[in-house]
């Protein structure tokens, strides 16, 4: 079988089926809203969103690999670039920039200038602790876990809390050897 060249995020995004952005935004808003009603505690909501994202991520990674034809990344730096330029573009329609690498090359930040999840959204005073987009954390974490990278993803900046951009810090904890059977030890 001939090798297929990796496709750019733009190309995949252009050919992908799409739904109306407002439908997407309002659906996500409704989910968050419902979680707040059900769970009452914002911390619980954050956890739940993260878990939901994780479940999405572990499924999404296969679609991502199938459609993007990206080859194996040589290091975590490349992984981060692929997530920012291809992954985000493919599923969210925006690209992120990768910055703030630490010396060891295990921690970086994905900065989103634009985020379709938060159109119309304004956090009320009662929900100041809420990470509205926490689902994205989970998606990144879940997806990377499936390709044998254990990561920790946290929000650094959030425009809903008055910052100037969305910054997602991705920290590589360890790379699990591939042949090692995955064990749920957490």
């Amino acid at each position: 079988m001939p090798a297929v060249a990796p496709r750019s995020g733009d190309a995949i995004f252009a050919s992908a089926e799409r739904v109306n952005a407002e439908l997407f935004t309002l659906t996500y808003g409704a989910i968050v809203r419902q979680l707040i009603t059900d769970l009452e505690e914002v911390d619980e909501v954050n956890k739940q969103l993260d878990q939901m994202g994780y479940n999405i991520g572990v499924r999404l990674i296969d679609e991502f690999l199938a459609k993007s034809n990206v080859s194996r990344c040589v290091d975590f730096k490349e992984t981060a670039e692929v997530i920012a330029k291809v992954g985000f573009k493919m599923f969210l329609g925006v690209t992120a920039t990768v910055t703030n690498w630490d010396a060891e090359g295990t921690t970086c930040s994905l900065v989103l200038e634009d985020n379709p999840l938060v159109d119309f959204v304004e956090l009320p005073d009662t929900c100041q602790g809420l990470h509205y987009c926490n689902v994205l954390n989970g998606v990144v974490r879940g997806a990377l876990e499936m390709v044998s990278m254990k990561t920790e993803v946290t929000w650094i900046r959030d425009m809903l809390r008055g910052d100037d951009a969305y910054e997602l810090q991705v920290k590589l904890l360890k790379q699990i050897p591939e042949e090692y059977p995955y064990k749920d030890d957490e």
């Binding site: 935004t25 809203r33 119309f120 959204v121 304004e122």
Partner: peptide
């Protein structure tokens, strides 16, 4: 329309949005 699209706005309640 944008204000009522805020998921934290409850339809039929006062619009408190600063935006």
């Amino acid at each position: 329309v944008d204000a009522v699209s805020n998921p934290f706005h409850v339809p039929g309640k006062k619009i408190t949005s600063r935006t």
